[in-house]
Structures are given as C-alpha cells and as structure tokens.
C-alpha cells in the first residue's frame, strides 16, 4: 500500500554520492534513481565499490559528498523501510545464537529500544525461515549450517524486516545450486509484492537472467538501465576492461584537496 502511494517518488535516489577510504575515492559522483518494484543487479569488477555503494546508502559508511533518499526521505527518518543482507563473511558464525534468534533480529528494528520480541514476532520469524526452507533447523546453532544455509538465514532475517527496499551484498557468493534457486525464487516473490531489491552480484551470465535492471559500476556509474539494453559487449568492456586510471588519479587529487579543505574548516 505504501508502495502504491510512493509510485511517483523513486524507491532509492542517490545524488552525487562520493565515498572515500583513507582519502582514496571509491565512489565518485554517483547519480541513480531506482523506481519501486524493480530487481536491480549491481555488477562491476573487484574493487569497483559495489559493497561500498550499498553500505553508504544505508549510512554504514561516512560519505564525503552527495545524499541518498529512500522513498523521498533521509534514511535516518525511517530506517524500517530498508532491509539488509550483509556478506556472509561479515559475522562470526561461532557466535552463540540459534538460527531462529538470528532471524528474530530482523524484527528488532520495528520493536524499538527495550521491547522484547513477542509471540507474533516469533511466528513471523518462523514464517520467514519456512520461506527459505530452513524451518527444521530453527533451533540449531548457526555454525552447524552449510554456507548456503547460512546465506539463507541472512535472507530470512531480511524478510523478517518486512522492508520495502532491500540491499543484498553478494547473496549468491559461494552457495550451492539449491540455495541459489531458493534465493532467486524469494527475490522474485518480493518483487511481485512490489518491493525494490538491489543485489550486488559477481556472476555475469546469471546476472542477465536474474535482474530486470543492471547497474554497471566501476567507481562511477557506467550504465544503468533495463538488462537487455545495458548488457552489451561495449558497456561491459567499459565496466570491466581497463581501470579508469585517469579519472582515478584526478579524483584522488581532488579528494585529497577536498579533505584538506574539510580539515581547515573543521
């Protein structure tokens, strides 16, 4: 219902976003507007800034310039509209929690500080686990799962967030065929429910099958559009072939200047 009301405003609007690590720019002047209800693949070579893009959209990384709006608002105003599937390697899987505990974490953002998940939250978490076919493992400790199952736990946790815009960081990395099929089924189901999904992806052949739109990224946006238009040899060559060395150098010099200026002002 909110998705209908928001039909006019983009689900995600990124304007002139610049992000640097230690003065080295990773993203440079990103301008993207994603309409609601789309399944978008973000592809590009290693170090192109794919993870950095989605992390900075969610405010997990400091940005050096530009802004990001989710359904027309700053994310800080309503973080509940965004769901997140981080990279599987980002957590310690020996952590003493059960599968259901992890999925319940998806409800924490809605609950607010100090309130505990109740029966309804538990039921919702179980339903999400069921969607990724992991309900039988709900009470297992998370290290007892295979890599693909762990990835599906993260997906179930994101489903439990009941968000409208999802960011997923390499959900298909190193998973088995069954998990890949389960994940893509869930993604399509989300899309038909009107959700917007941005997926960082590394595999070109499947990228073509899976996504409505592709965002070709290499420090800046090489192309963004419907898959059949963007998935061309020329644009892919532009994305993957050869580093944009000149831009990188100029940007670095500019970034250093901007940072130094910022330092003086502070």
């Amino acid at each position: 219902m909110t998705a209908d009301a928001d039909a006019a405003t983009p689900a995600l609007e990124i304007h002139d976003l610049t992000v640097s690590y230690h003065r080295k720019p990773v993203l440079w002047g990103i301008d993207v507007a994603v309409a609601p209800g789309q399944l978008v693949g973000i592809i590009g070579p290693n170090g192109a800034g794919k993870s950095t893009l989605i992390k900075s959209c969610m405010g997990l990384l400091p940005v050096s310039g530009g802004w990001v709006k989710v359904f027309g608002k700053s994310l800080r105003d309503d973080p509940r509209r965004v769901g997140y599937v981080p990279q599987r390697e980002s957590v310690d899987w020996d952590f003493p929690v059960s599968v259901l505990d992890v999925v319940l974490m998806g409800r924490y953002g809605r609950l607010g500080l100090g309130r505990r998940p109740g029966k309804a939250d538990r039921e919702a978490a179980r339903a999400c686990l069921d969607k990724v076919q992991l309900l039988p493992f709900a009470n297992r400790q998370i290290s007892n799962l295979s890599g693909g199952q762990q990835q599906r736990v993260f997906l179930a946790r994101a489903l439990a967030q009941e968000a409208d815009l999802y960011f997923m960081d390499e959900p298909f990395a190193g998973v088995d065929a069954a998990t890949e099929a389960a994940i893509i089924a869930v993604l399509r189901e989300l899309r038909s429910a009107g959700k917007t999904i941005l997926v960082v992806h590394h595999d070109l052949p499947t990228a073509r099958q899976y996504f409505d739109r592709l965002l070709l990224l290499n420090m800046n946006v090489v192309a963004f559009g419907p898959t059949e238009e963007v998935f061309t040899a020329e644009l892919l060559q532009k994305t993957y072939g050869g580093r944009l060395t000149l831009l990188s150098e100029v940007a670095q010099a500019l970034g250093a200047g901007a940072n130094a200026g910022g330092g003086e002002r502070a």
Binding site: K55, M58, G59, L60, R76, P79, R80, V82, Y84, P86, S90, V91, D92, F95, V97, V102, M105, G106, Y108, G109, L113, R157, Q161, F167
Partner: peptide, 13 residues
C-alpha cells in the same frame, strides 16, 4: 555483538 552492521542498518543506536 553479532552483527553491528546489520544493527546499524536496522536503525539501532
């Protein structure tokens, strides 16, 4: 403790 990045993305302080 488990996943600070996710916690921040969920809007937790």
């Amino acid at each position: 403790s488990f996943d600070p990045g996710f916690a921040r993305a969920s809007g937790l302080p």
